[in-house]
Simulated scan of single mutants.
Amino acid sequence: MPVFSSAALRSSVASRLRAAGCVFAEDEARILLSAAASPAELAAMVRARADGRPLEHVVGWAEFAGLRIAVDPGVFVPRRRSEFLAAAATALTGPPRGPGAVVLDLCCGSGALAAAVAAGAAHPIELHAADTAPDAVRCARRNLAGTAAAVHQGDLFDALPEALRGRVDVLIANVPYVPTGDIALLPPEARLHEARPALDGGADGLDVLRRVAAAAPAWLAPGGSLLFETSERQVATALAVTRAAGLTAEASRQEDLDATVVTATLR
């Protein structure tokens, strides 16, 4: 029996991870065993995970919306709850916006949301993604290589070509929304190993959202929508922010994923 098929080895790895505080030790052990190419690599991966590195950074990928998304060290790890945001955005790519709907993933990180929308859209779309972090942009370009997406680098809308102004049908902006004072409460694997700008949303968590909402009407097509994720405690303020920008906004909730998405539309 191959060494990585050994139940004893799997149990040993799970025990090491459990002792390090990994809640899903058995599942993580299975992933590490499948990812390692040698006993030495397995040992290094287990050690890195036990030391607190995110599993996705250790193996180099995350599963998101049925896709395997490359995630490089330091790049924000896509969360499963964001699959609700991806599904909401995908639903808006059909008629009357599609075929040919223009989709923009702002603050794209690894490009997971853009990749999920590209995979789920029933019609061809024109896809763009943007992030300010060079490592995130490199990662997104790998994940979106098969989609003909254009990936831009820069600060929010400053990254975009002027030709997109007034043409965006679906604007996904998974902006950071953790209040600065709550960063210290995050799990160490996020707090210590993911880029802080991808997490820190300012005093109330909505600083970046305010910037996006203020500029979004100039970039959205008539009837186009801005979609973003927020927390339950922030949703009332987030709705007020988008409405103050002249958008018609509503929130939706997916309890199983503990996910709240706001859709704000330019009428």
Rank of each mutant, 00 (worst) to 15 (best):
A133K: 00
A133D: 15
A133G: 00
P134F: 08
D135V: 12
D135Y: 00
D135Q: 14
A136W: 02
A136G: 04
V137F: 05
V137E: 01
R138F: 03
R138H: 09
R138Y: 01
R138W: 02
C139F: 09
C139R: 05
C139S: 13
A140R: 03
A140D: 05
A140C: 04
R141N: 00
N143W: 02
N143A: 04
N143K: 09
N143L: 02
N143F: 09
L144R: 03
A145Y: 07
A145C: 00
T147Q: 01
T147C: 04
A148F: 06
A148Y: 00
A148I: 00
A148G: 01
A149V: 03
A149F: 12
A150L: 12
A150G: 10
A150C: 09
A150P: 00
A150F: 12
V151L: 00
H152T: 05
G154Q: 10
G154D: 12
G154L: 05
D155Y: 10
D155H: 15
D155A: 15
L156E: 10
L156Q: 07
F157D: 12
A159P: 06
L160I: 05
L160D: 12
L160K: 07
P161S: 14
P161N: 10
P161C: 07
E162G: 15
A163F: 01
A163H: 11
L164V: 13
L164D: 07
L164N: 09
R165Q: 15
R165L: 02
G166F: 12
G166H: 09
G166Y: 13
G166V: 09
D169N: 14
L171C: 04
I172W: 08
A173Q: 05
V175S: 05
V175H: 08
V175E: 07
V175K: 03
P176Y: 14
P176N: 12
P176E: 14
Y177E: 06
Y177D: 06
Y177A: 09
Y177Q: 02
Y177K: 02
P179H: 07
P179V: 11
P179T: 11
P179C: 06
T180H: 04
T180K: 01
G181V: 11
D182T: 13
I183A: 04
A184W: 06
A184P: 00
P187N: 05
P187Q: 06
P187H: 05
P188I: 00
P188N: 03
E189N: 08
E189V: 03
R191I: 08
R191D: 09
E194F: 10
E194M: 10
E194C: 02
E194W: 10
A195E: 14
P197T: 10
L199H: 11
D200R: 06
D200T: 04
D200N: 13
G202D: 04
A203C: 06
A203S: 15
A203R: 15
D204W: 10
D204A: 06
D204N: 08
G205P: 02
G205W: 12
L206Q: 03
L206S: 07
D207L: 11
D207I: 04
D207K: 07
D207H: 10
V208T: 15
